[in-house]
Nucleic acid binder design. Structure first.
Lengths: 346, 346
DNA sequence: AGTAGAGTGGAAACCGCTTCCATATGGATG
DNA sequence: CATCCATATGGAAGCGGTTTCCACTCTACT
C-alpha cells in the first residue's frame, strides 16, 4: 500500500508499481520528445491503468510553467447570448484538451478586472472576455493594465466585443448590422421608430443604436430622440423600457430593441398592455438568440454567429504564439425579417 | 529586474523587494496560523501591491494538497435549465472564493465519467454533476467507481438529480410534482392526455412520466399508452414528439411535456401546425425555466427552484468534512397553473 | 537573577511533476 | 578489436509555493 497524504495515486506510485524510475514513468505517460522502450512503456501504462492514475494537473502546471486552462468571463451565463458564445468556446476547448473556467462578471467592469487577475494567478493560457466594453476610461485603464500583466505571464487575452484593447479580438459588427436593419424596416414601410437602447455606457448598445439611427437618416426618416429609451441590457430592462415608451403614447409604428433579450421582454410588455403585435406595432431585435425559435410572433432581428464567435475566439488564441501581435476578426450580422415586422402600407 | 522564466512575479520577487524571507512573505500574504509583525506585514503587502503580485494558485495547490476549484458538469450550458443551476453554483462559488470549471457532457454518461476523471486530476475540491442519471447500470457502475476515486483524493461529489449514488445529493422531487400536476389538470376538466416523455433511459424523464401517470390513475383518468411519445429531452425533441403526436390524430385535450424545454418546442410545433393553443389543446411542462416568462400563452408547469438547487449543491459540499457520510436534500416543486391550461367544461 | 514560555524570523524540506544531465548499453565504424 | 556515436534509462535539480523545525528575542514569573 502506497503511503498516502492525500490518498491520490501519484506518479511515484505508478513508477514503483512498474519498477521504473520516475523520469521514465513521466515520459511514458505524459509524452515527451524522449523515447521510451516499447516494453517499459507498456509496463508503465499497465501500472497506471491498474492504479487508476490521474496526473495531478496542478503539479504538471507548476513543473511546465504553463497550463491548459482557458478562462471565460461572461456577464451572465444564464443569458442566452452568453451561453451560446460559451458553447462555442467549450466545444473548441474540449477538442484541444483544455479546461474551461467560468465566471460571471455581472456586467461590472471592476469584477472583470478582478477576475482577470484571478486567471493570471491560475496561469490560464487564454482568457476570453465576452461582452460589451464600456465607455468609461477609468475602468478601461484598469483593464488595460491587467491585460498587460496577464500577457506578461505568457497568456493570451481575447476580447469578444469591440476592438479597443491591444488583444486578440473577435469584433461583432454592430453598427453595420443595425444600419442595414433600419434600411430594411424603412423599406417595409415603417416610419415612426422607437428605440430601446440599453445603457448609454455600453458600447455595444451604443453602436447598435447609432448604427440604426444612421440607417434611418440615410433613408430619409426622422428619429424622434425622445422615443429613444435607455434601460438595462436585459430582459427586464427591455420590459421596463417598453412600458415607458408605451406610457409616452407617442406615435410609433416600430420598435427596435438593441438586443433580442430586451426585445423579448418588450414583446411581453406589449402583451401585458394589450398592444397587438405585430398588427399595430412592429418589433425588431438584434443577435438572433436561440430562444427566438419559440417566440411568437417570430422576431425580426440581425443574426450574429454567436457560437462561432466563441469558437473563433479560442482558436485565435490557440493559433497565436506568445508575443505575436494582436489579431482582429470581424464577424458580420445578417438581417432576418420575420413576422414581427410585416410590410406596412404607409 | 527579477530573472524571468515565465515573466510572472513570484513570491520570491516580493520577498526580495520587501527584504524578508520567503517564509515571512508567504505568511504575510496568504495567511497562516502564524503571526507576522505589523511592520513586516505591511512592507510585504506594499511590495506585493507594487509588483502587482498574483499568487500562483497551481503552486499553492501542489503545496497545500488541495484547491479551491469546483468542477461543474452539465449536459448543455445553453439549456436554460442548466444555466439556471449553474448560476446558483457560481454565486456561491464566488462568495467562497472558489473557481468554477465548466464542462458540457452533452448528455453522454461516458463523457461524464471522463470529465470527472479530469476533475480528479485537477484535484477539484468539489465536483457537481447536474442532470438526470441514466438507468443503464454499466454506465452507472463506471460512474460509481470514478466517484469513489474522486472522493479518495479528498474531494466531494454532489449530484443534482436522483439520489442513487453514495454522494451528497440535491434531489428534485420529480414524481410528486408530476403527480400533483396531473391531479390539478384533471381538476380543471382535462381527460385525454398525451405525454411527451423524453428518453426512457433518463430517470428524470421516467420519474416525471410515471408520476404523472400515477396522478391520472389516482384521479380515475385513463391514459392511452400510445399517446406517450418518447423523444430527446430537448427543445427539438419536444417539437418532433409533438409532431408525431399530432400525426396520430388521437383525441387528446391536454399534453404534458416532461420538461419545459420540450413543452416550448411542442408549442411551436402546434403553432406551425395551426393547432390553436390553448383553445383546442392544453399544454403543461415542468421546471419553470426563466424563458417561460416570455412565452405566450403562458405555460402551466411545476416550478422547481433551480438556481437554489445549484447554490445548495455547492453549500452541501462546502459544509461537509471529508469523510462525512453523504447528505441528501430534497427540493419539492410547486404546480403553477397558467394560461396554457384554462378550465375545460368536459 | 534564572528560567520557562510565547512570539517572531529564517533555513530547509516537501508537494508531484518535468526535464536537464550523466551514465550505461548496443551497434556501426575504422 | 578498439572507438565512437546514438539512444534508452535513471538521478537529481528545479517549478512556486507552504509548512515544519529550529534559533533567537523578549516578557513574566519564581
Amino acid at each position: 500500500m502506497p503511503e498516502q497524504r492525500t490518498g491520490a495515486v501519484t506518479l511515484t506510485d505508478v513508477a514503483r508499481e512498474a519498477g521504473v524510475s520516475l523520469a521514465t514513468a513521466s515520459r511514458a505517460i505524459n509524452g515527451s520528445t524522449r523515447q521510451v522502450g516499447e516494453e517499459l512503456r507498456e509496463r508503465v501504462l499497465a501500472a497506471a491503468h491498474k492504479l487508476n492514475y490521474a496526473a495531478n494537473t496542478q503539479a504538471q502546471a507548476v513543473a511546465k510553467g504553463r497550463t491548459n486552462i482557458v478562462g471565460l468571463l461572461v456577464h451572465d451565463i444564464a443569458d442566452p447570448y452568453f451561453s451560446s458564445i460559451a458553447t462555442g468556446v467549450i466545444r473548441v476547448a474540449e477538442a484541444s484538451q483544455m479546461l474551461v473556467t467560468l465566471a460571471n462578471t455581472e456586467r461590472n467592469p471592476a469584477r472583470e478586472v478582478e477576475h482577470l487577475g484571478a486567471l493570471r494567478g491560475q496561469h490560464s493560457r487564454v482568457a476570453i472576455l465576452v461582452g460589451s466594453r464600456v465607455s468609461e476610461s477609468a475602468e478601461a485603464d484598469a483593464l488595460r493594465r491587467e491585460i498587460a500583466a496577464f500577457e506578461r505571464t505568457g497568456g493570451r487575452v481575447v476580447m469578444v466585443s469591440q476592438d479597443l484593447h491591444p488583444a486578440d479580438t473577435v469584433a461583432l459588427e454592430n453598427r453595420a448590422g443595425a444600419r442595414e436593419l433600419a434600411t430594411e424596416l424603412v423599406g417595409l414601410g415603417y416610419r415612426h421608430f422607437g428605440i430601446l437602447a440599453g445603457p448609454g455606457t455600453l458600447l455595444t448598445a451604443h453602436d447598435r443604436t447609432e448604427g440604426f439611427a444612421d440607417g434611418l437618416a440615410a433613408s430619409g426618416v426622422d428619429l424622434d430622440q425622445s422615443n429613444v429609451i435607455h434601460g438595462d441590457f436585459t430582459r427586464d430592462g427591455g420590459y421596463t423600457a417598453m412600458v415607458q415608451l408605451l406610457e409616452r403614447e407617442a406615435e410609433v409604428d416600430c420598435v427596435f430593441a438593441a438586443n433580442d433579450v430586451m426585445a423579448v421582454g418588450a414583446m411581453t410588455a406589449c402583451r401585458d398592455h394589450d398592444v397587438d403585435l405585430p398588427r399595430t406595432l412592429g418589433m425588431a431585435g438584434f443577435d438572433d438568440i436561440t430562444t427566438l425559435r419559440d417566440i411568437s410572433p417570430s422576431l425580426t432581428t440581425v443574426r450574429m454567429p454567436l457560437e462561432r464567435a466563441g469558437a473563433l475566439a479560442l482558436q485565435l488564441a490557440l493559433d497565436a504564439d506568445p508575443g505575436d501581435p494582436p489579431r482582429v476578426r470581424t464577424l458580420a450580422g445578417e438581417v432576418v425579417i420575420r413576422q414581427s415586422t410585416p410590410p406596412r402600407s404607409p
